[in-house]
Amino acid sequence: MPEPVDQPPRPATAGPLTCPRCGREDRVTGVGAAYLAAKAKLREETGTGEESKVTTREENSALAQALAPAPPEPAGTARSCTATLLLLGAVGTFIWGAIAGKWLSRDSAERWIPGPSGDGHVVVDPPLLHLAWISGAALALAVLLFVVEARITAKWRRRTLPGRGAADAVWSTAWYCARCGTVHFTGEPALTLQQFRTRVWSAGDYGDLARRHPAI
């Protein structure tokens, strides 16, 4: 994005919509409106005929992410999916071991082995203890991943939620110029998207996160 340098003086009759960089207002909108307009809605259609299914999901564009009043919530999809798979594996391994190894009941593990002359003897199948270890390890790892995910999300909320009101109050008074790609507040010079992000997030007391999440 171009830096707001060498800005022309604002006309004496300039209103709040007038961009301090280009001196025009035909492509200036409120930051809130620009943010919502930048959110892309993707339409997906699967199947054919009567079995077809249409789903719509919302995806933030680069501009929407740059204008966001707060840092994005940590994406824990990979951790959650891995934990779910491990949990299912732990349950499946335990059930398999319980049926094949018969470790839940010693009597059910007894088998009659007939002999060649009609006699025979009883044998006891040993439990499949290695399956128990695999099941337990998978369960422990799944629980650990769920706990890590919960702690990361809780930390993010503690940092952002208390200051969101103050950040939104500053964010909602700004204007975005689509021609210059800059943001301004009434009567002030134009700001780059990164400068705007730092100002808004600092109002919410999480401005240090702006360096970790640079705007476009």
Rank of each mutant, 00 (worst) to 15 (best):
R164P: 00
A37T: 05
D168E: 14
S117K: 12
V31L: 05
H121Y: 15
G97N: 07
P214A: 13
V5Y: 03
D6W: 08
T77A: 15
E44W: 09
E45D: 08
A12V: 08
G101I: 00
A166G: 05
R27T: 10
R151T: 10
G163T: 00
V183L: 04
G187C: 01
A167E: 07
H130L: 11
G15A: 05
Y35V: 05
S117R: 14
R179W: 09
V170N: 01
D208Q: 09
T46E: 08
L139F: 13
E58F: 04
V123S: 11
R57Q: 07
T46V: 14
F146E: 08
S172K: 15
P74F: 03
L67Q: 06
L144T: 10
N60H: 11
R179Y: 09
W156D: 02
T82Y: 07
L36E: 15
L191W: 05
P114I: 02
A68T: 06
W112S: 03
V148E: 10
G89Q: 06
T18M: 02
W112D: 00
A140T: 02
Q65V: 13
S80D: 12
E58R: 09
Q65K: 11
W171K: 13
G165E: 03
C180W: 01
Y35M: 04
T153R: 11
Y35S: 05
C19Q: 11
G30E: 13
P114H: 01
I216S: 14
L17S: 14
